[in-house]
Design a protein around this nucleic acid. Structure first.
Lengths: 339, 339
DNA sequence: CGCTCACTTTACAACGTTGAATCGACTCAA
DNA sequence: TTGAGTCGATTCAACGTTGTAAAGTGAGCG
């Protein structure tokens, strides 16, 4: 059985509250007493019971991170960033996988388990704009991603439109004229796909290039295989293009693979850019140009906002923050020179 | 403020203990009473305070998973599997990243935060065999991986030697004669690298092929770039080989990339096999043959053993379990036919 | 009609901690 | 010498829950 304050107190010959005072660095503890207590603590290997402390104090020192699935590289890297950001503030992270399932996404917010943490960082994938009113829980929430705007929670998101526009302009700047898109979602307006497609269109408009639905490939999911399938689709319908904007990195990787199999050289015949700056894009052949959406900043901002909100739940109106992005040119657009 | 048992009791006109009884499905609660209480629960939106329950019951319903880093795909997929396995038993998972740092690996076991969970699944990367005695904490531990054997904790590991032998034999069966190894660790005997290299040697011995250190490439880390560097190294020293065993998938991917750049066709000139069966190996060009080390089984076994150990900490001696593996032939060894 | 016994509900303590309030001892100034 | 003020340590209650034991209710039976 683990030692408690009482055990330490008994050994040190003081009241258990004095031990508590020592641990919490209260003033008004005599040095000799402090020493006695610390000796007893060391001797017994006493460790405070954080559950009891949580019950008494009302907060746990943990936060929950709810995301679709860790085996999707984007979310693995996001989780990494969130855990590191949380650790800087002494917070520990509890991860819930929703599998992008609507029911589980709602359950996460309703579950009493959530109260084992002080707040929720929530990256939904099934819930959408129409569910904005359902974003609420017993703890403060910081929302991530592009699926829901204007809820009553704080929200951190990347600059999808502007960043996608910059990615497209990067291709245009290289002299590319017909830029295919891999990964659009039929009819979507917000959401990563909708916003990034809008950025793409804005870039075209900016250069006076007409938008051609014939070189837009639609998919349902954003997995590697969908990028490959979409590129097969484009090639099968005889679409002509000299560049590809994969709406995320895994889609772009799938597309590159199919292009190479079909005998196209990347970037000479077709330049390809992705989105997300996954770690692995630095090691593919060719290395993949992409957009760094500011993952670290997203994580740190989310943690900071969550801590502020935990401290003062109603102290301010819901905030929306967009992080800085950066186009990362690599071999798939500019060839080996810059690699 | 969230409703408590007392609030519900007041509304339902019963004692707060009766409400507790209803919630815990105690027998001997009259149907009419139960109905009254349930109505009040619904009306107040009462949710039990799990922190208080934990304090009282002594267990939290959470476990800690300590691993090096989620942005390493192997660990991301491991975490995914562990979270899913835990969820099946109603457990939630708290993740600690150690960054493969010795100090942090030790801290994880010593931290009072660990007691916010009922047990630890620990995948060390810095601690080694000489630290076996340091593997202990206030909660039961299940150890994962190949770095420490024979500690006083339960241990789940893959069949590294046998699986590596099977991977090598797969290449030999294809008629390959000179199989280079990418990713060996200088002087290592246990550890993933040491064990897998042993399996490789056993396979060669089994076929009467001499072991040649000239086609073994040593690395320090197992990141993608190391696989590339190791392959550069092999090519630079003019090593001749017709196959490559990457001791994990990321190493193999790096090697494949360099081989392709150097003009070799995979698998026709050089066949390549990896180890881990990362999801992404199904989408590279060529798709990567590999060894599925039984990740789901590892996760489920670890959870099961941990739960048994939580229930009865000293009920049995430390156990070592090795999971089933499977060689997964893909394009990088057998060409496009099976893809 | 009263007693037993099963069923139902309640009272109380405890889990280990912290905050508020209290108390005693000592110092210092008037 | 006394009263105020400070320092040091203690007592008590509370956080919200569950286990134990006891108390209350009613039906069944002799």
């Amino acid at each position: 059985m683990a030692a408690t304050l009482h055990d330490v107190a008994r050994m040190a010959g003081v009241s258990f509250k004095t031990v508590s005072n020592v641990i919490n660095n209260h003033p008004h503890v005599r040095d000799t007493t402090r020493a006695k207590v610390e000796k007893a603590i060391a001797e017994l290997g006493y460790r405070p019971n954080l559950t009891a402390r949580s019950l008494r104090s009302g907060h746990t020192g943990a936060i929950t991170l709810a995301l679709p699935q860790l085996s999707l590289p984007y979310f693995a890297e996001l989780a990494d960033a969130v855990i590191e950001a949380a650790a800087k503030h002494g917070l520990v992270v509890l991860i819930e996988q929703t599998g992008a399932d609507r029911k589980r996404e709602l359950e996460v917010m309703a579950s009493p388990r959530l109260k084992m943490s002080d707040g929720l960082i929530f990256s939904p994938l099934a819930l959408g704009q129409e569910d904005a009113d359902l974003i609420k829980a017993d703890v403060p929430i910081v929302l991530l991603g592009e699926r829901i705007f204007g809820s009553s929670s704080d929200h951190v998101t990347m600059q999808n439109v502007t960043a996608a526009r910059a990615a497209t302009e990067h291709l245009l700047d290289l002299g590319k004229k017909r830029i295919a898109v891999v990964g659009a979602h039929e009819g979507e307006v917000i959401g990563s796909a909708g916003l990034r497609l809008r950025g793409y269109r804005e870039a075209l408009e900016g250069r006076g290039i007409p938008y051609d639905d014939g070189i837009i490939a639609y998919v349902v999911d954003w997995h590697r295989s969908n990028g490959a399938a979409a590129m097969h689709d484009l090639l099968d319908r005889g679409a002509s293009f000299d560049a590809v904007f994969g709406l995320n990195d895994t889609l772009a990787q799938g597309a590159v693979r199919v292009l190479q199999e079909a005998g196209y050289r990347v970037p000479d015949d077709v330049a390809v850019i992705g989105f997300d700056d996954l770690d692995e894009t630095r090691y593919t052949l060719p290395t993949l140009s992409t957009v760094d959406p500011g993952r670290t900043e997203i994580a740190e901002t989310a943690i900071r906002m969550l801590m502020e909100r935990i401290k003062d739940p109603d102290g301010m109106p819901p905030r929306e923050v967009e992080t800085a992005f950066r186009v990362v040119p690599r071999e798939s657009t500019v060839g080996a020179a810059i690699a």
